[in-house]
Design a protein around this nucleic acid. Structure first.
Lengths: 236, 236
DNA sequence: GTATATTGGTGAGTATAACTCACTAAAAAT
DNA sequence: ATTTTTAGTGAGTTATACTCACCAATATAC
């Protein structure tokens, strides 16, 4: 009766069972990583056998992809709303960078799964998760495009490359944090990335035209002052 | 006699056998990827049994790391020499970006192993491959530092972040090529990345000081004009 | 030249985990 | 009440990383 393993079989509807499996899978994948996670453990946590999981998911991998898909749905939430409240291409770019860093900061384990187990695999390209990721990063590309249209950003920048430098850069930089080493300074990094992307690392030199104009004005002012004071005559 | 499987046992010295195994492992890992590569296949290609490989390598994973270590040794080759021939921080930065893209272009399969199977794993941090990778990326950081010292680059840029944006950006952007989809425009990308990093994407605005000088000049000009024309008095 | 030690190599075996399938029984439809 | 549908089972099968007791070829000692 009270023997370990003696249990009552519980029958759930398809939807509820699928939801339960996804939740348990998310937990186990996050705790152990994909490789080390055993389908049998996911089953054990729900007090069902392995075979039941394969009734609803074709493979362990499909289960992983579905877990990540659900997470993306959560993320999309209020991107549009947040963006609507911010004006100026640079500010909007900053917001997206900040929000992405925030997600990495809040869900490092899921990010790890996404970066390590999903994004790098053959079957990612063309998958539903891929489509959702594209939609996610498209927010950034759109903001960059707006910036070009309003004249805030140069028209000759390769948008896709810039997108990759931002997301790839954040991924690389956050990797230690994702693996549980060190902290992630969301605010500071968002500032720095926005600065580098917008202004580059070269020291600011005057735009050539403006520099010349200033020079011209300086000369005129000098000449005028000489006339006004009328103290001495300049030698030609 | 001519039955399949009937073969002559060949005894090699430790060094030669290790070298052979590393080469065969590199081939199989590149062809199949780490997961799908079977140690038994690596053995089969050398006409030895699986156990022999475990005589020289503790695990399949150690074998992978050793393969990548050897590759890094090849890569280091002439970085110092190449850099010595180029002057100017921007040009040197461009060279490193270009050389890295060139490596990705020439060894996509090994890059794939590095990015996907090695860099993302727990045991990477602290491994010999990690040390070699650090040495590799340090070239870039050093070039950036030089640029700061010579006054070509701003002193307030976070070097590690910039390094990650460059290498992470390249990795993201090259991923399709690495997976066998599309081409990789090494020259074009090197130019674009250097441009973005050095100059940013914002349209050039006057440095603040120059803007102020212009303002100052305008005010003086206005004042002078008023005095010169002396037609009407301004109401306080 | 024979005996001994060293070491390259073998192949049968173990362990683990993803995945399959024939079957059971509870619930829904008729 | 009977039939159909479907949630769930549990005992397999398969694949592969890894182990180990043993063999035999070569080098060394005498």
């Amino acid at each position: 009766m009270s023997r370990a393993g003696a249990r009552k079989i519980v029958r759930l509807g398809r939807e509820q069972r699928v939801a339960d499996i996804l939740q348990a899978a998310r937990d186990v994948f996050c705790e152990k990583g994909y490789e080390a996670a055993a389908v049998s453990e996911i089953a054990a946590r729900l007090d069902i056998v392995e075979g039941t999981i394969y009734k609803y998911f074709e493979s362990k991998r499909e289960l992983l992809l579905k877990v990540l898909e659900h997470w993306y749905e959560e993320l999309f939430g209020d991107y549009e709303r947040d963006l609507a409240g911010v004006a100026g291409a640079r500010q909007r770019l900053h917001l997206l960078v900040w929000r992405h860093l925030r997600s990495v900061h809040d869900y490092p384990l899921l990010c790890r799964l996404m970066f390590r187990e999903v994004r790098a695999e053959q079957d990612y390209h063309g998958s539903t998760v891929y489509a959702k990721n594209r939609r996610y990063t498209q927010f950034l590309v759109d903001v960059l495009k707006e910036g070009v249209e309003t004249g805030e950003f140069r028209a000759d920048i390769p948008l896709a490359l810039l997108r990759d430098m931002i997301y790839g850069g954040i991924e690389h930089h956050a990797w230690n944090f994702i693996c549980g080493r060190g902290e992630l300074d969301v605010d500071g990094l968002a500032e720095q990335i926005t600065l580098i992307v917008c202004n580059g690392i070269a020291v600011q030199r005057p735009a050539t035209d403006l520099g010349r104009e200033t020079q011209r004005l300086s000369q005129i002012v000098d000449r005028m002052e000489r006339k006004l004071s009328a103290r001495s005559k300049s030698t030609k």
